[in-house]
Amino acid sequence: MLILHCPYCGIDAEETELAAGGEAHLKRATVGDSDAAFEEYLFMRENKKGVHLERWRHAYGCGKWFLAARDTATLEVYGTYPAQTQEPPQEVKDAIRAKHPGWAWKENA
């Protein structure tokens, strides 16, 4: 039963108020992109045992999508941040690297 902080309405939301939306910072591939690139976008997933950047919607709250950096092995949450970004904010990266020195996430961090 996770609790995630909604960066929009500022409350700590119960998992039952939230809808999970899978891996964050996917780059949409579309017409003109290769089959491989399209497969990458739709199906290939980091699925890390460890830090995971992911999407959540405060579905039974403010309705906003936000992003979270969460550890899939310990369920620690390093931070949440608005969805309108290509990469986690510096403080979230710092929080992650404090526990996981050298951490990296594709081209986003």
Binding site: A19, G21, R55, R57, A59, K64, W65, A83, Q84
Partner: peptide
């Protein structure tokens, strides 16, 4: 409706 919001908030914000 959720699908629309997903695209508007996360892709074409």
């Amino acid at each position: 409706h959720g699908w629309m919001e997903d695209w508007l908030q996360c892709e074409w914000w």
